[in-house]
């Protein structure tokens, strides 16, 4: 009984019309969670975590650098998941989800690169080193930009959804290949002159600050993606009657 009910729900919410109000309810909740977690994480990061014995205070960049790097990779995986679902099940909503996630993933990707550069300067003496992780992060940013450029260039909604999904899957297949090839290239060219391995034992308070910030990044991503997918749904379903009512309501509110 319960399984059939949940399956019904799943398909029910796969329709943009059903998902739109749900997203509207969930987005502010996740936004609030993100704010609370970010405040808590920053409090731990700046007022609880002690000074690092080796790196001094500059290590505090870790509280955004690592969550941003995780998030940028994870968001690409989630986009690939939605793309696969969209191609396999032919649902409109999944492609819209992938498109709603892309700008936030690209933003986190850039944040990871930027904070990595600012962290690298005092610790290794250079803003940029062609390290495997930094380089594959840069290539991931290019993949995000390519996806967004392709989606923006296509006018026909059906083609946009599917072409974006194929590109996303092709990119997802290539991400591990890129990572390992860059790593191989990096070990050949640089040897062990630059070692990016973190201190082996990170104080648990630092780790917990980082994890709280990572959860905040999750909540932020979910919230922003839900807000964005609402706009995408309105644009896509503009001819549906319920969208007209919603638009009229929004038009009066603003």
């Amino acid at each position: 009984m319960s399984t059939s009910e949940s399956r019904f729900n799943l398909y029910h919410y796969a329709a943009p019309q059903a998902f739109y109000p749900v997203a509207g309810k969930l987005a502010p909740i996740f936004a609030a969670i993100a704010v609370v977690l970010a405040v808590a994480g920053l409090w731990i990061g700046f007022f609880k975590a002690p000074t690092d014995a080796v790196q001094g205070e500059v290590y505090r960049i870790i509280f955004i650098h690592v969550p941003a790097a995780w998030m940028s990779m994870f968001v690409f995986l989630v986009m690939a998941f939605w793309s696969a679902v969209g191609l396999a099940m032919n649902t409109r909503l999944s492609a819209l989800m992938a498109q709603a996630l892309a700008p936030t993933g690209a933003m986190f990707c850039f944040v990871a690169l930027w904070t990595g550069a600012l962290w690298g300067r005092p610790t290794w003496g250079a803003y940029w080193v062609w390290d495997a992780r930094l380089t594959s992060q840069l290539l991931l940013l290019f993949l995000y930009l390519g996806y967004m450029a392709l989606v923006a260039a296509i006018d026909d909604p059906r083609r946009r959804d599917k072409a974006g999904a194929i590109l996303c899957l092709v990119g997802a297949v290539n991400v591990p290949i890129i990572y390992f090839s860059v790593k191989w290239w990096n070990t050949l060219h640089q040897g062990a002159s630059v070692s990016l391995t973190k201190a082996p034992s990170m104080a648990s308070i630092m780790l917990s600050g980082m994890l709280v910030m990572a959860l905040a990044a999750w909540a932020y991503t979910i919230s922003v993606a839900l807000y964005r997918v609402r706009v995408l749904i309105l644009e896509r379903e503009r001819h549906a009657d319920w969208v007209r009512g919603e638009l009229a309501r929004l038009g009066e509110a603003s």
Binding site: G56, V58, I61, V111, T115, L118, R121
Partner: peptide
């Protein structure tokens, strides 16, 4: 002493 790096990171984010 690493204020510019830390606040540069957090500021841009």
């Amino acid at each position: 002493g690493s204020g510019p790096f830390v606040w540069g990171s957090y500021g841009v984010t």
